Amino acid sequence: MLEVSNLRKVYGPDPNAAPAVADLNFTVAEREFVSILGSSGCGKTTMMRCLSGLSPATSGEVTLEGRKVDGPPKDLAFVFQDYSRSLLPWMTVRRNISFPLRYKGVDRRAADAATEEALDAVALSGRGDRYPWQLSGGMQQRVAIARALAYRPRVLLMDEPFASVDAQTRSGLEDLLLDVWKRYEITVLFVTHDIDEAIYLGDRVLVLRPPANVGHEVSVGLPRPRHQVETKREPEFGRLRGELFAALEHRPVAS
């Protein structure tokens, strides 16, 4: 579904400047959920901007279903970390969700149906006439997710979308995301700096090291559906946590 080949990103006119992304290579299969794990400042957000077509790569390429990404693809949606700034405060929740559908050429009746379905998917039915500033942080993030779902993307990119909410709200959003991932059968690339979150959500976890390149990769064989308590009690969860922590710290990883 998504292929990243020798991706490199340098800011500024000097091609010899220190890169934010260097020699990045990986693939994501259709309907796969891949977590991208990395410490702050390792180039995760720059990478996501290149993958989404929002920022041009210095060299290398990104392809979506075999087509080169040279601008924001219509089959891709992006949920940002700062959800409060991505929602338009003068628009109702319903209008925030529906307005990007104009870009896709969706007629009003179909847009209204997609919006209501997305509101239901994120458990916000009945709140469509409210404004973002009338909702809690967790609800605002659900609006951002609903907007992406209404767009009906083939690929959903998410850049640390739950970093600004409390632990309990975060757990609920993680479970919500897994529910909608299954319901909409989409491909998800999810960036986080939280090891437990990366394991809990993903089919695979890629560890990024600065400048952003894949330093380690693990497959997550934990059964689905997952549970916040039971899944995290699994010995395999603890083993994966230790392996990923070692990879982040550039320590030897046990085989």
Score class of each variant (00 low, 15 high):
Asp194Tyr: 08
Pro13Phe: 11
Leu149Ile: 12
Leu76Tyr: 01
Val34Phe: 04
Gly53Val: 06
Leu244Thr: 13
Gly215Asn: 08
Leu208Pro: 10
Leu206Ser: 05
Ser171Gly: 14
Asn16Arg: 13
Ala144Met: 13
Val218Ile: 11
Thr231Ser: 13
Arg31Lys: 15
His193Glu: 07
Ile36Ala: 01
Thr46Leu: 12
Met47Val: 10
Gly53Leu: 01
Leu240Tyr: 03
Pro89Trp: 10
Val69Ala: 00
Gly137Ile: 09
Arg67Leu: 05
Val214Gln: 08
Ser255Gly: 13
Leu2Arg: 00
Asp120His: 12
Ala20Val: 06
Ala150Phe: 14
Asn6Arg: 15
Met1His: 07
His227Gln: 11
Asp107Met: 09
Ala254Met: 08
Val62Leu: 06
Arg152His: 11
Phe99Arg: 04
Ala123Gly: 11
Arg241Asp: 04
Leu124Val: 04
Val21Tyr: 09
Tyr11Val: 04
Ala111Val: 10
Ser52Leu: 00
Ile145Gln: 12
Thr46Asp: 01
Val188Ile: 15
Ser39Ile: 11
Arg170Leu: 13
Pro73Gly: 01
Glu217Gln: 14
Leu244Asp: 04
Arg204Met: 07
Phe33Glu: 13
Phe78Asp: 08
Glu174Ile: 14
Leu177Tyr: 08
Asp179Ala: 15
Gly172Pro: 06
Val207Lys: 05
Asn213Asp: 04
Pro132Glu: 02
Leu240Phe: 06
Asn25Met: 02
Asp179Asn: 15
Ala77Gly: 07
Met1Asn: 10
Ala118Asp: 05
Ser136Ala: 07
Ala246Tyr: 07
Leu7Ser: 00
Arg204Gln: 02
Pro13Trp: 09
Asp129Cys: 05
Gly41Ala: 05
His250Cys: 13
Gly53Arg: 00
Gln168Cys: 03
Glu30Phe: 00
Asp70Cys: 08
Ser35His: 03
Gln81Tyr: 04
Thr115Tyr: 04
Gly12Met: 01
Val155Ile: 15
Gly242Ser: 14
Val191Ile: 15
Ser59Phe: 07
Arg127Ile: 05
Gly43Asp: 07
Arg109Ala: 15
Thr187Met: 07
Ser164Leu: 10
Gly126Val: 09
Leu37Thr: 10
Glu61Val: 00
Val155His: 07
Tyr103Pro: 01
Val205Lys: 09
Thr27Val: 12
Ala150Trp: 13
Met1Ala: 13
Thr45Phe: 07
Glu230Lys: 15
Phe33Cys: 13
Gly202Met: 06
Asp196Val: 03
Arg239Ser: 11
Tyr103Val: 14
Asp75Lys: 14
Pro100Lys: 12
Asp112Phe: 08
Met48Thr: 07
Ser164Pro: 03
Phe80Ile: 05
Val207Leu: 08
Phe162Cys: 08
Gly202Pro: 00
Gly138Trp: 02
Gly105Ile: 05
Ser171Glu: 15
Arg94Gln: 14
Arg152Phe: 06
Asn213Ser: 14
Pro153Cys: 10
Trp133Ile: 12
Val69Ile: 02
Gln228Met: 11
Arg67Lys: 15
Leu177Met: 14
Thr27Met: 07
Lys44Ile: 00
Arg209Lys: 14
Glu160Asn: 04
Arg102Tyr: 04
Thr187Tyr: 09
Pro235Ala: 09
Ser59Met: 09
Arg95Val: 11
Asn213Ile: 06
Leu208Trp: 09
